[in-house]
Design a binder for these strands. Structure first.
Length: 570
RNA sequence: CGGGGUGUGGCGCAGCCUGGUAGCGCGCGCGGUUUGGGACCGUGAGGUCGAAGGUUCGAAUCCUUUCACCCCGACCA
């Protein structure tokens, strides 16, 4: 490609106020252009990279035995109703109606479509396991698009769906794990594999592939020694005992003229924060219940864990009005001891969920469900009982991982994930069955596996750039060589044109800067676009029968003969 | 959806408070001088001032409504 003819030339002023490096660089370098919020044009250079990433994904998926196909983008709405996901997906489904009034969802993920496809085939156990995948545009009506390609409303995703038996699943899952590692490795992206919450997709466990980046939205924790890695939603840690050998003291009520915060309690009683009982009151809109989360004062409630423990779906904080009037308590003085006394009728049922940390401290203190009244020496079991006892604590940097070493907090971009779906969809969708050895119908055990192509592209830029611009890994670079011609001398032009032809014939991706521009501009654009190697042909060099070769990542260049150059870059 | 902000040539902005000829820089076209890290001179094209309504002799500017976009929060490939 000649830069003089390139559609989407670099422009340093374009989008100069963007906050995210990848957003700014990709825009300035002429790879992407915003259409409307969260929807982007991929310009020729951007498409080139996009396709290189797709080729890498395809190669490794095929190697793993997965089979590529394409599904419709419009999904019959009945399918989403069949799995009850028209209301439960967290991203807003986009809908469209045809002239006959048939309703479709614009696909945001395609579990239902995959199941619907395979249930119309007569499949025997001999065909199992198998894995089908596609690259297709996905639509998600995100509340807020942001960060350039990091979070958009329309994007290409590689989504794969595996079908098999429960026994086979472990190998299939591990196979995709290894495949993903190979994919991101080849694309030049370092990723951490972290355990995560499976959210709206369904199933019991899943892993995210996260590229560490400041701009990332995923917070996760890793134990660098043992390799334990988990998203903050699911990260577990060891809760050390505090004063479990202390004798139980009698429960007391004391006047407490203090404010409503944890700090107020700490200051008033002059006792450590960990000894305070923290009570957070939620309301679950899905199951219409109050959920009181109780936890040791130095810890925070992890709402994901809480929802799982309590079987809740749609948590919100309880209002002050609900706390005072329906639950007869007081914000800042909530306490599990005598919380909603017997006989008192509330509008909605109450569930008390206690964190395991409550067993690591004794003689705790906290409110008494009345303004300016506190309890001292609160002890679980003796003074109050919880309906559900579970780990509902949010991990913090520095606390010991389950393997004992301190957790390190990181931020990153989730570029892919693998989900165990189990029988979730087979149970919800009738006829998702194969014939087993004895001729009986059996449900499929499923998994699904996604990679966001555009997000991967942006993550690569986040991880590979400097002050001057992008630094593409060779495997995904839009071109391998940036050929800059300096000067208009006919000899120089001839040498540069010839070299360009030679490289094209050798099938080496080359971007030929044949513009009548000054050297500084060409060099700056080469750096901004991030092409791995720069070759210079100039009047002086031509006179000396030399070519200059420089790697984007390096400051020094070398002078080579024509033969040496071709040998080096082929 | 809650909070904050912005809409003026392709891009970045000024003008708005205090109503009266739409301006600057970059980019783009043309002519010329330049050519190893984003040159310079001359010249030219390009704007229903986000949209609708209102006030006024007169609105980019004041008022009302509305839309879009950005940033922070709750969600995800």
């Amino acid at each position: 490609m000649r830069v003089s003819k390139l559609f989407g030339k670099p422009s340093k002023t374009e989008g100069s106020d963007y906050k995210i490096d990848s957003h700014r660089l990709l825009t300035q370098a002429g790879f992407i252009r915003e259409s409307s919020a969260g929807r982007y044009y991929l310009l020729p250079l951007g498409l080139k990279v996009h396709e290189k990433i797709i080729a890498i994904v395809r190669k490794h998926m095929n190697k793993a035995g997965a089979q590529e196909l394409v599904m419709p983008i419009l999904h019959p709405l009945e399918l989403w109703q069949e799995t009850n996901r028209t209301t439960t997906v967290s991203f807003e489904l986009m809908k469209i109606t045809d002239r006959r009034g048939a309703e479709f969802a614009l696909g945001g993920t395609a579990e239902e479509m995959a199941v619907d496809l395979i249930r119309h085939f007569n499949i025997s156990y001999k065909d199992l396991p198998f894995n089908v995948y596609q690259f297709s545009n996905k639509f998600r009506d995100e509340l807020r698009a942001r960060g350039g390609l990091l979070r958009v409303r329309e994007f290409v995703m590689k989504d794969a769906y595996s079908f098999g038996t429960e026994d086979q699943f472990k190998d299939v899952y591990q196979g995709m794990w290894d495949t993903y590692k190979a994919i991101f490795n080849e694309a030049g992206l370092k990723v951490d594999v972290v355990a995560a919450d499976n959210g709206y997709i369904g199933g019991d466990y899943c892993h995210e592939f996260v590229a560490e980046a400041k701009a990332g939205e995923s917070r996760y924790f890793i134990d660098e020694k043992s390799g334990y890695a988990a998203h903050e939603d699911v990260a577990t840690f060891t809760i050390g005992d505090k004063n479990t050998e202390e004798a139980l003291k009698p429960l007391q009520q004391v006047a407490a003229d203090r404010g409503p915060t944890m700090k107020d309690g700490e200051d008033f009683h002059k006792l450590p924060l960990w000894q305070q009982v923290k009570d957070v009151l939620y309301f679950d809109e899905a199951t219409k219940r109050y959920i009181l989360a109780v936890i040791r004062g130095d810890l925070d409630v992890n709402e994901t864990k809480l929802m799982q423990a309590a079987g809740a779906w749609d948590l919100r904080a309880a209002t002050e009005d609900e706390i005072r009037h329906d639950l007869a308590s007081e914000p800042g003085f909530i306490c599990p001891v005598d919380f909603v006394k017997h006989g008192k009728k509330t509008k909605f049922p109450v569930v008390i969920v206690g964190d395991k940390s409550l067993r690591t401290a004794r003689n705790m203190y906290g409110g008494a469900n009345k303004k300016h009244l506190d309890h001292l020496n609160i002890n679980i079991d003796r003074d109050y009982k919880v309906d559900i006892e579970a780990d509902i604590a949010l991990a913090q940097a520095g606390v010991p991982s389950p393997d004992g070493n301190p957790l390190v907090e990181k931020r990153g971009i989730e570029v892919g994930n693998i989900f165990q779906l189990g029988y979730h969809y087979s149970n919800l969708m009738e006829g998702a069955e194969y014939t087993d050895e004895s001729g009986k119908r059996q449900k499929y055990y499923m998994g699904c596996y996604g990679i966001g192509i555009g997000r991967t592209l942006a993550a690569i830029v986040e991880a590979n750039h400097d002050q001057k611009g992008i630094m593409w890994p060779e495997s995904v670079a839009p071109a391998k060589i940036y050929l800059a011609r300096l000067g208009n001398n006919p000899d120089t032009t001839k040498v540069a044109d010839d070299l360009y032809q030679t490289l094209l014939e050798k099938n080496i991706d080359v971007l030929y800067d044949d513009r009548d521009a000054r050297p500084g501009e060409k060099f700056a654009d080469a750096d901004l676009m991030g092409i791995p190697y720069r070759v210079v042909v100039s009047d002086k060099l031509v006179a000396a029968k030399q070519f200059e070769l420089k790697a984007r990542s390096q400051d020094e260049f070398e002078l080579l003969t024509h033969a040496e150059l071709l040998q080096k870059i082929s």
